[in-house]
Design a protein around this nucleic acid. Structure first.
Lengths: 266, 266
DNA sequence: CGCCCACTTGAACACCCTCAAAGGCTGTGG
DNA sequence: CCACAGCCTTTGAGGGTGTTCAAGTGGGCG
């Protein structure tokens, strides 16, 4: 987990290698490779970086040590107990975060898409408490946290953005708590699908048809259900013509009914 | 929700009024009253404020606009939709945070004790998403967030502490997600009680015997259970001599068994 | 004292889990 | 290219946990 790639020096620039990453990023890189990058040319700039940075501030932000890193599907970005040094911005692909129970059971606590931040919880104790696993071939920006803090201290608008992203993580967790605490299985799934749909839409993808990157078991863990229950719910929703499922490909048909289910008391 | 109390000018100091606040703080104040305070004399300093501040930094921190405020039991500190302006540090007493569902149901998402921060999620959207309600007569420090950010930008150790407190909120939420996602009702209650016990111990209170400040209904909402189920679980644990309950007064007897329950798969 | 609210306890039922079996998809190696 | 293994997914049946509805008790406060 150390950044010893020959490419990881701040001055170096990515030398693209023709390996396709999903989600249509124009540039690509070898897996395991890590390259210095600049945010000013990043497609996700409007998600990560605050609007209206002055040229000088933007330059200062680009000076934060930061490397891009490709993570293959199933690989872990960090594990519980790893020393906290970086936060990670998902650049392409998707991740799950998993918390381990003392007895070995796992709980999926997060499902992260492009533009979202990973690993923030690690600041509390100086080491990560969760594990982050790529759900597909993905890319992240690893941002050295001390450097980021230093810049945030000098550029108020950066600091504000950092805090907003912290808060966004808290709000995400809270809405997940709402799901687990008050909803029936069916409503949890409906709400989960609508949430993903909205987040994909915000990234410019189709909110109607998408590929789930988690297995039934992972979705179940995330929603506090068993994998069989998740499967049954999908079948039931399809039988009611509310959506169509084929393996992990979901197409929302009746978004209104889905919304009612997510918000209904029963 | 504006700070227009005559006492709320930065220079003024508290004029104690003999109203008792639980949890044994030496100084007290009238309810609804808001007074400027300094952290350097606060009993919770070691929880809120980082260790080893230089004198100069400590002075700068004390300059952050900040007022103490007494909140009577049942009163709300902020509501969902309120503009986000302050974060609140619990000084004495306890709070719950509640998220409202579109259909009117409520979900208790947090149970906050002295030294913990309230309202952080509001930064994300500029307004609060949850509601905070005092569970007993309590006191908070209301800290103007822009001012806090300004000081954090100048004093790295303050900034680090702020981030740590952010992260602590995330970690708290994650462990609650673990509870709701993987545990049976009984294990949830056991884990909840142990969590409270540990947090009270950290504040110097007895970890063995304490007063729950939430009703069965609120505990149930927090744990994703019905109030009847919570009541039954308490009765069952008492029948097994693992604890004793009388209304809201709980005494943990067999902490080992409680821990096993919280960590067991079944 | 009496009201109200919180809490307790019981019984029937619903939801979801557990166990089990079978079919489908994917990737690997022959 | 096919065969096979392994995992993911679906579906069924039965049982357990927690919910819902209902009634009754107890404590706190006016």
């Amino acid at each position: 987990m150390s950044f010893d790639s020959p490419c990881a020096t701040p001055a170096a620039n990515a030398r693209p290698q023709p390996i396709r990453i999903h989600h249509g990023f124009e540039d690509s890189m070898r897996f395991g490779e890590m390259c210095a990058v600049r945010c000013s040319t990043c497609a996700l700039r409007r998600v990560c970086v605050p609007e209206g940075l002055s040229d000088e501030d933007a330059r200062r932000f680009d000076d934060v040590p930061r490397v891009r890193r490709a993570v293959r599907r199933g690989e872990t970005l960090f594990r519980a107990g790893d020393r906290f040094e970086h936060i990670y911005a998902v650049r392409a692909g998707s991740f799950k975060t998993v918390v381990m129970h003392p007895d070995g059971r796992e709980q999926v606590t997060g499902y992260l898409l492009a533009g979202e931040l990973l690993g923030l919880g690690g600041i509390a104790a100086g080491h990560h408490v969760a594990e982050a696993v790529a759900l597909e071939d993905s890319q992240v920006c690893a941002i050295g946290f001390p450097g980021l803090e230093a810049v945030a201290g000098q550029v108020p608008v950066m600091q504000r953005q950092l805090h907003r992203l912290f808060a966004a993580a808290i709000v995400r967790d809270q809405s997940q708590l709402l799901r687990l605490g008050t909803m029936r299985g069916e409503a949890r799934l409906a709400s989960f699908l609508l949430d993903i749909s909205a987040r994909l839409a915000a990234l410019g993808y189709s909110p109607r048809s998408f590929l789930l990157r988690m297995t039934r078991e992972e979705i179940g863990s995330y929603l506090g259900l068993q994998l069989e229950t998740v499967s049954r719910m999908f079948s039931r929703l399809q039988a009611r013509s509310i959506l169509t499922v084929r393996q992990r490909e979901v197409t929302l048909v009746d978004t209104l009914s889905l919304g009612e289910m997510a918000n209904s008391a029963a």
